[in-house]
């Protein structure tokens, strides 16, 4: 994909995430990977007014910045995740309210709904988080994402990832619903957890089979 086209698509997705409250004008960030380059949203710039020149380009292996200004505080976190997880093509640091509250509670979110187990994984762990982001936080987040598509950032929302911005969007949506359910079932006497073996089985079936149906089933 050409860089100009990638930047235009990236801005369009940034607005979608913004309009759906996954990121705000001042908090949260979005990135995607094109080859060895990472495109990422700048610090405190509303996606509503983002231009192609504002999009920051970072060399993933070396870390140098070739375009844009004011990288976000979590920029090194995005880069660390791309370096560790080669199949990851997009990352969203979401600050959506349900996800944010769950990150503030600091409790592992167990899947109370099948789709959380399928699309995010058998648990959503909580990683350390504060700004500035240091090596210890990066290691904690990378560890938290092992065999998962999202990790809660203690007090700071969550990091969701996918093969592209569309997949990462699905992860954000399902995590939001899973967190909302986790919070509100407390008022109904508590959510009933799905058997852990079954959550793992559903995740496996989703990754091997169901996630490919949109392309295969034609």
């Amino acid at each position: 994909m050409k860089l100009d086209q990638a930047r235009a698509e990236f801005i369009s997705w940034a607005r979608t995430y913004y309009n759906e409250n996954f990121i705000s004008g001042s908090e949260g960030s979005i990135s995607c990977r094109i080859g060895d380059t990472m495109l990422i949203t700048p610090r405190r710039k509303s996606p509503a007014t983002l231009t192609p020149e504002d999009v920051i380009l970072i060399d993933i292996p070396g870390g140098s910045m070739s375009s844009g200004a004011n990288p976000p505080a979590d920029m090194s976190l995005h880069r660390a995740v791309y370096r560790k997880y080669k199949e990851t093509g997009a990352i969203v640091h979401t600050v959506e309210p349900n996800t944010m509250t769950s990150s503030m509670a600091g409790k592992t979110v167990y899947p109370l709904l099948d789709d959380l187990a399928q699309i995010v994984g058998p648990t959503t762990r909580v990683a350390r988080y504060s700004e500035p982001v240091d090596a210890g936080i990066r290691a904690s987040v990378v560890r938290g994402l092992k065999k998962r598509s999202a990790v809660l950032l203690s007090g700071g929302g969550a990091l969701c990832m996918g093969a592209n911005l569309d997949e990462a969007h699905a992860v954000c949506q399902v995590l939001m619903k899973g967190c909302k359910c986790f919070i509100e079932t407390e008022f109904l006497g508590g959510g009933i957890r799905i058997n852990p073996v079954e959550t793992r089985l559903m995740r496996l079936v989703y990754l091997i089979k169901y996630s490919k149906q949109n392309v295969k089933n034609r």
Partner: peptide
Amino acid sequence: THQMNASTVAAARK
């Protein structure tokens, strides 16, 4: 459906 509020009640199995 996977509607939000009914799914929450279903997760509490009420």
